[in-house]
């Protein structure tokens, strides 16, 4: 494990291989060339491919995404790196009105990746929004949320070989995790969830860093003899509801968890759909775990109070186990 690539190195590996494979792929964003991005996600790539294919931009999010949209329509395969997903708000028209809707009307495709680091960590309200639900909500967008180095690389490759706008969200707190990665042709498909941990007694459906919280909770419960299954969605659109339903049918007990505000969230979508299509399999209500609907405080204690803890996860699983 110690010698395995990190989450960021997995991204470097994927982008490097794909840029050698396809000369149409290029990256643009702030602080990419020297700094290698705020999460070292493209460290060394500019030195390898030059400043034309790893383009440093001014802090102009609307123009960054517009540049990507127009270049993609022209036939290139741009990756717009926003560093922090929170900065996408400066380009929301370009992402939603433009990138997502062009194919539907204008007889062309927009093979564009918008990569940014997302999720809750330190740093306060302006760098810790959870936008997964509204990107997944938008027709025309696909949303990747890799939870492992393997999936970072494999999902990136799949996205770079498709013809669609993809929002690629990498979690801050996974930046340094290590794990095996695939080779040049090991692609991870969108819309195929992964069973991160097998178990026969209850299922936690999640993605991103919440998988770590769920794994810790599963260990706590394993000590008590309960076998908890964890499903990593990998992509939020398309979403592998079949995997969710199949797991649910094993035992009828399900927790859906992430760290976004619970109201109108991805977890609400999963719980509602699972209830509609598999109500008869449920032994009791699906339990959702998520954040309070508060902007994120910069105070560590208040952060912990806002998002789900291992204890919260254990409590939610115990509730479904009680049915």
């Amino acid at each position: 494990m110690a010698n395995d690539p990190s989450y960021s190195e997995a991204y470097q590996s994927g982008i490097r291989e794909e840029m050698y494979r396809d000369s149409r792929i290029f990256i643009l964003g702030t602080d990419l060339q020297e700094r290698g991005g705020h999460f070292a996600q493209v460290k060394g790539i500019a030195q390898e491919f030059g400043g034309e294919r790893v383009r440093d931009t001014p802090i102009s999010e609307a123009a960054m995404v517009a540049a990507g949209v127009g270049a993609a329509m022209y036939g290139m395969r741009p990756v717009v790196d926003l560093n922090f997903m929170d900065f996408s708000l400066g380009a929301m028209d370009e992402i939603i009105n433009q990138a997502a809707h062009i194919r539907y009307m204008f007889n062309g495709s927009v093979p564009l990746i918008i990569r940014a680091t997302s999720g809750i960590a330190a740093g306060g309200a302006h760098h810790n929004n959870s936008f997964e639900s509204f990107f997944a909500h938008t027709p025309g967008l696909s949303v990747a949320v890799p939870g492992t180095p393997y999936d970072v690389k494999g999902l990136l490759k799949t996205a770079l070989r498709a013809d669609d706008p993809v929002v690629f969200m990498m979690h801050k707190k996974l930046t340094g995790i290590r794990g095996p990665i695939g080779g040049p042709e090991d692609l991870v498909p969108f819309g195929k969830a992964r069973i991160a941990r097998e178990g026969a007694d209850a299922t936690v459906v999640s993605y991103g860093y919440t998988l770590v919280t769920a794994a810790k909770a599963a260990e706590v419960l394993a000590a008590e003899g309960e076998q908890i299954e964890i499903i990593d969605l990998r992509t939020l659109f398309p979403m592998d509801m079949d995997a969710v339903i199949n797991s649910l049918k094993k035992h009828g007990r399900m927790v859906v968890a992430d760290e976004a505000p619970l109201f109108a969230s991805i977890t609400a979508e999963i719980a509602a759909t699972a209830s509609e299509v598999a109500f008869d399999s449920l032994k009791g209500p699906i339990v959702r775990v998520g954040a309070q609907r508060a902007p994120l405080s910069a105070d560590p204690g208040q952060v912990d109070a806002t998002i789900p803890s291992v204890d919260d996860m254990v409590a939610a699983i115990r509730k479904v186990l009680s049915y």
């Binding site: 517009a66 540049a67 949209v69 127009g70 270049a71 993609a72 022209y74 036939g75 290139m76 370009e94």
Partner: peptide, 11 residues
């Protein structure tokens, strides 16, 4: 116009 700029980058 922004998309036009992006097209120019593509060109």
């Amino acid at each position: 116009m922004g998309i036009g700029m992006g097209a120019a980058l593509g060109i």
